[in-house]
């Protein structure tokens, strides 16, 4: 079975390490915060200028001056810090954030990512995504493996305008956990009950399958 949004977030959360500073994009990546493994401390960075983002506020705690990058009201955890946007992106571009999780429309075997613009449709902008993919070394892209019509989103070459070039090494889809290296996709894990053949069929770019591929554990 393909993973649900929550399961994708849950699997990504297993990649968190104690002491990580993490930036979570909008959508599925945001859900990762709900599955931080027990005994592990992570601090969430919100690129509008907050390190140490907490949960949503209660009605009484709502503060118009305290929002996240999705413009939602949030709170701060103990030990949080606040800074301006240049400082925030100095952290991101300077490689100080340990893990970035973000969504995408397409990725390809060269580690290119397209996530902000579909020509002919309304263009809303890249926000901080281009800075995040250019600056971070450790990025996990979360996405569906293929469109509803079965068209692969893991390609030989991205068809949409790029958000970043050669910067993606790990992709977690609803079907598989994949590493990108040497111009190929490498299958690391498969979603429970999903066969290697199914994944192969929905992966346009070359997929390397080395030995027995384990199922994801939850």
């Amino acid at each position: 079975m393909a993973l649900s949004r929550e399961q994708i977030a849950q699997r990504v959360a297993q990649e968190l390490k104690d002491g990580y500073y993490v930036n979570l994009g909008i959508g599925i990546p945001t859900l990762v915060a709900n599955y931080v493994p027990e005994g592990i401390e992570v601090m969430l960075q919100s690129e509008n200028g907050l390190l140490g983002m907490g949960r949503f506020p209660t009605e009484e705690e709502v503060d118009a001056d305290l929002i996240n990058a999705g413009k939602q009201t949030v709170t701060m955890t103990a030990g949080a810090s606040l800074f301006d946007s240049a400082e925030s992106f100095a952290m991101i571009r300077g490689g100080h954030v340990d893990l970035t999780v973000l969504g995408a429309f397409e990725v390809d075997v060269e580690g290119n990512i397209a996530s902000y613009m579909i020509p002919g449709k309304l263009i809303k902008g890249m926000g901080g995504a281009m800075d995040l993919v250019a600056g971070a070394d450790n990025i996990i892209v979360t996405m569906t493996h293929a469109s509803k019509h079965g068209v692969s989103k893991l390609l030989n070459k991205c068809t949409l305008p790029l958000t970043g070039k050669g910067c993606i090494k790990k992709v977690l889809t609803d079907l598989a956990f994949i590493e990108i290296k040497d111009g190929k996709f490498h299958l690391l894990e498969r979603a429970p009950g999903v066969s290697v053949e199914e994944i192969q069929q929905l992966t346009e770019g070359e997929l390397v399958v080395n030995g027995e591929i384990p199922e994801m554990q939850f």
Partner: peptide, 14 residues
């Protein structure tokens, strides 16, 4: 985007 949680929700980490 006014997002709130119920006041009685138990404590949990970020």
């Amino acid at each position: 985007q006014r997002t709130v949680r119920p006041s009685n929700q138990s404590e949990q980490g970020a």
